[in-house]
């Protein structure tokens, strides 16, 4: 079937990778250099601190999830990730952040990696990339930025619901017109539990 090949390319003018809504999956398979499996394992262990990873992801702002997996007895490595938009638009930007250092630290153990700051690094990644057969996400319309915003808004909303002053305001007849609007009814619907 040619359509399987063409669909992602027609929606993604630049690189392969399947999309769902605003997101693109980006999965790379590489060969680990001989004798470097232990070194990679140690680097991954050192990088597995959630705090550092989270900080790196905050810096990127478009990465939903990422995992590094070693397999085939330590001879191969998979990097699987989900980005907003296309991953390669921002690859030069990543190289300038803590994410660049993390990429460098992992992929230096894999064969042929030119270095995260090399101008040909996009082509190298694309050559190692395999496009997913199926890619689906539970929230296809939401970018990382929106998920963070939504989380902040909900936390603030819940705090408002906890204040007695808010309960009193709902009972105040002066606010009846506001309460009657469909938009506010939607908000109250979410406030019920």
């Amino acid at each position: 079937m040619t359509t399987e090949q063409e669909t992602p390319q027609s929606t993604q003018p630049k690189r392969p990778g399947r999309t769902d809504g605003v997101m693109t999956e980006f999965t790379v398979f590489t060969k680990i250099k001989p004798e470097e499996a232990d070194a990679l394992r140690e680097d991954l262990a050192a990088m597995s601190s959630q705090g550092d990873a989270r900080q790196a992801m905050e810096q990127i702002g478009t990465l939903h999830s990422a995992r590094h997996v070693m397999f085939d007895n330590g001879t191969r490595h998979m990097f699987a990730s989900v980005f907003d938009g296309s991953w390669d638009s921002y690859i030069d930007d990543f190289a300038k952040t803590a994410v660049g250092e993390r990429f460098e630290r992992v992929f230096r153990h894999t064969e042929g990696f030119p270095g995260i700051k090399d101008p040909n690094v996009k082509d190298w990644f694309a050559a190692q990339q395999q496009t997913a057969g199926v890619f689906a996400t539970a929230y296809p319309d939401l970018t990382v930025q929106q998920v963070w915003k939504d989380q902040r808004v909900n936390q603030a909303f819940q705090e408002v619901l906890d204040t007695p002053e808010f309960r009193a305001a709902l009972d105040n007849p002066a606010n009846a017109a506001l309460l009657a609007t469909p938009a506010f009814q939607k908000l109250l619907n979410e406030a019920q539990g």
């Binding site: 702002g61 921002y90 030069d92 930007d93 300038k96 930025q145």
Partner: peptide, 11 residues
């Protein structure tokens, strides 16, 4: 300029 954005403005 120097505003907080996704990515690096200078690129």
């Amino acid at each position: 300029r120097d505003a907080t954005i996704v990515g690096a403005t200078r690129l």
